[in-house]
Computed example of a mutant assay.
Amino acid sequence: MADRALQHRRVHNLLLIQKLLGLRGDSSPFTLVLDTVEQSAKPLIRHYINNAKISKTDVVYISFETFKPPLGIAAFIKTRRKDAATIQKEISSVVSTTKRALLMFDTLYPLACNTNLDLPSFLSSLVTPTTSLLAIYHMDIPLPPPPNPYAPSPLTSLEFLATTIFTTHSLEQVLSRKRAADKSLAEPVFGLEEKREGVIIGLGSNDPKGLVLEMNHRRKSGRNIEEVFFLLPLTSKEKPLLLDDHPLYRRPDLGDAKSAADEVAAELSSTFDLGITAKQRRDREGVVLPYFDAQKDGFGGGEGGRILYDMGVEDDFDEEEDEI
């Protein structure tokens, strides 16, 4: 049962991540990507741009910190010294009402710092039946204190608004934390969390072998689906896989134990045959047990716990005991 549930989870979540990355349908109108200097979201953005070309979706790149337009996009909008209303007009001028489009914000930090802007309302106005939104939020850049201390933070509002949240992690750092957890040691910290002078990026950051992608997807019914994937570089042309299936993350002793259990089961099955044939099954179904007759009306059904028994030739009949 556990293996069947694991297989169902693997197939379902892999199909879901391929659907989200492939921009199929309206599976995620607003995708929020949370990254850090330890693991940039750029590899994930390359996957989205490449899949957008395959699905014939125009990518409109809204640049706050990118100077050179990425390859494969349809439009590049510079936002330097422009307010939110001007940005919205430029986006509307390049987005078609009949063709699917993906609006890609390279960072939300300038908009989140604007205290005069209602960020959730601004982003919601950009989403249409043919237009979806993908925005990057840098987790390691602190925001200025809000004017209203009781209002939710911009990140809290974005997480509430987003239909899919991707959090990027470095593979090498995830493996280091897992090795420490397996030995019951304190998890290592990297980068700014080390709180060392001059240390900004830790060891193993932005691993070129791929990134760990933590997904939190909210379905239309409101049910959340959480999973952790390993996303290979775009040049490998390999599909995502569950982090639990990664050979460096999966515990090797589990595989050995499973193979050993399979060998024992195969040996037992060759020695003992616990199954029954069709003839044995028919003979078993034809056997009438004694308590069946006791339930019939002709045998005093409903009169109590009456036991019917027919003596055989091998039974030893004791007349004195029977009289008692």
Rank of each mutant, 00 (worst) to 15 (best):
L119T: 08
L175K: 07
L274F: 12
P152L: 12
T128D: 15
E314M: 07
E320T: 10
E38V: 06
G304R: 14
R282L: 13
R282S: 14
G302Y: 06
D244V: 06
V287Y: 13
G222R: 02
S170F: 01
T130Q: 05
T79N: 04
I141V: 15
D293C: 12
E227P: 04
T131C: 08
D283L: 15
G210F: 02
R4N: 03
Y150K: 10
S132W: 06
D297V: 15
D207S: 09
P43L: 05
C113L: 11
S40G: 06
R196T: 14
S96E: 00
T168G: 02
G298R: 09
D106C: 12
I54V: 15
T107H: 04
D318Q: 02
T271I: 15
E194P: 00
G204Y: 00
V60I: 15
D322G: 15
A101Y: 07
A41T: 03
A112R: 04
F122S: 01
L23P: 00
P145N: 04
L158A: 02
V94M: 02
D245C: 11
S63Q: 03
S269V: 08
R179F: 06
D310Q: 12
R81Q: 14
G25P: 03
F105S: 02
F160Y: 13
R100H: 10
P146F: 08
K56W: 07
A52R: 00
